[in-house]
Simulated assay, not measured.
Amino acid sequence: MRALLVVNPKATATSQRSRDVLVRALRSEVDLTVEYTRRRDHAVILAREAVRHGMDLVVTLGGDGTVNEVVNGLMTAEPSTVDLAQPSAERLPALAVVPGGSTNVFARALGLPREWPEATSVILDGVRLGRFRSVGLGRADDRYFTFCAGFGLDAAVVHRVEQARRRGRVSTPSLYLRAMIAQYALGTERRHPDIALELPDEVAATELATVVIQNTAPWTYIGDREVNPNPDASFDLGLDVMAVRRLRVPSTTRTVTQLLSRRSQPHGRQILRMHDLEEFTLVAGRPQAFQLDGDYLGEREKVRFSSVSAALRVIC
C-alpha cells in the first residue's frame, strides 16, 4: 500500500520527536511518502497530487484545518485522474487522521482516541485489517467540510480566536469563551436578525440571527465534554441545522446553558432545528462571518449547502 503522510509542522499536540515515531510506525506497514505543509491550502495541493500519483492512502497529522484541506484536495482532484467506473468513495485514496491539533473534532467523531499514539495504533490496525468506513461530507458552495459550518455569531467567534492565536495566544476553552462573550457584547448586531434559510420548494425561515450546521455530532468539544446542538447529526445522513432567531440576553443565556448541559439539547421559541437536510441556502441582508470545520473563511451574504453521501473512505 502506497501512502502519503501530510504533516502540519505547527500542529500543537506533537513534536518533531513524536512525528519521527509516527513516520517509523507507518513505514512498518506502508510504502510512505512524507510532505510538510508550508502555507494555508498547501495540503489541498498535496492531496490532489496523491490522487494523481495513485496513492492508496492519505494520512494527516494536524488539526481539523489540515484534515479539511486534505479532504478538499481529494474531492476536487481532476476527474481524469480517477476511475469513474468505481463507486465514488472508492475512486480516491482512503483517509486516516492522526489527531495533532488542539481539538480534533473530526478524529474524535470517528471514534479515534484523543491522543496521537493511541490513535496511530488504531489506524495501523485498520490498515492491517483493511478496516474502512464510508462517511458523508457537507458542501458549502465549492468547498467541502467534514463536521461543521457556521454562519453568523459562531463564525465571528472563530475569527476572534484566530486573531488571538496569531498574537501568540494558545487555543483553550477559556479563550473561546472569552471570544464568544466579547463578540456577543461588542461585535454582533442583535436587534435586526436578517438571515434566511431557504429550502427547495418550501417557504423560507426568516429573521434568523445565527446558524450552526452539522455533518456529524458533536459540533465541538470543551476538553472532554461534547457540545451538541444537533445530537442526531450523522456522517450517514444529511445535514442538521440549529438556528437562533433572536440573540436576546435571557434566551441566549438559556441556549448556552442547554448547550453546555450533558443531558439537554437547545430548545425553545428562539430555536429552529432541522434534521437530515439534503440541500438548503442561507441568505443574509448584510455580510455575515462564515466558517467551515473551525476555519474562518471571511464574510458572505449567500451560501448554498448540500450533503454528499458516502463521499470518502476513512480508516477508524
Rank of each mutant, 00 (worst) to 15 (best):
E301C: 15
S121F: 04
D154S: 10
T76Y: 03
A311I: 14
D125R: 15
G54C: 13
T76G: 01
A204H: 11
M274F: 15
L177M: 10
I213K: 03
R131V: 07
E207I: 06
V105Q: 07
M55Y: 10
L259Q: 08
R269E: 03
G238T: 14
G298I: 06
R169L: 10
P99I: 04
I181P: 03
N8H: 04
Q291H: 12
A47F: 04
Q265L: 07
Y184C: 04
S251R: 04
R167G: 12
E189W: 10
A289R: 04
A47Y: 05
N228R: 15
V58P: 05
R160W: 00
C148E: 01
L259V: 12
V161R: 05
R160N: 13
R52N: 04
N228Q: 15
R166P: 03
F280T: 05
E207R: 12
V308H: 06
R225I: 05
I315Q: 01
E189H: 15
G187W: 03
L124S: 01
L61S: 05
N68G: 09
A109R: 12
D154W: 00
Q265M: 09
E279K: 09
V97F: 02
R286W: 00
L95Q: 02
L177S: 15
R52S: 13
V122N: 08
T120L: 12
P250C: 05
A209I: 05
D141S: 06
L61Q: 10
A155Y: 02
T188H: 04
M274E: 11
R169M: 07
L32E: 00
D125E: 11
L199F: 15
H192F: 13
A284T: 08
T281Y: 00
A284V: 05
S309L: 09
S234I: 13
L22I: 14
V59I: 12
E189R: 15
V71L: 08
R169E: 14
R190K: 15
M274R: 15
L61R: 03
L208T: 12
F145T: 09
L57R: 09
R286Y: 00
F235N: 08
A156I: 01
Y296Q: 02
V59W: 07
R131H: 14
R139M: 12
V170L: 09
E118M: 01
L247P: 08
R304I: 00
V58W: 08
G223Y: 02
L26P: 06
V59M: 10
A182F: 14
P173S: 12
V122F: 07
E69V: 09
V82N: 13
I213S: 05
A182L: 14
Q214Y: 01
A47L: 02
V67P: 02
R225H: 12
R262M: 13
D31L: 05
E69T: 09
E90L: 12
S121M: 07
N215S: 13
D41R: 05
R245L: 07
L175K: 02
S134D: 14
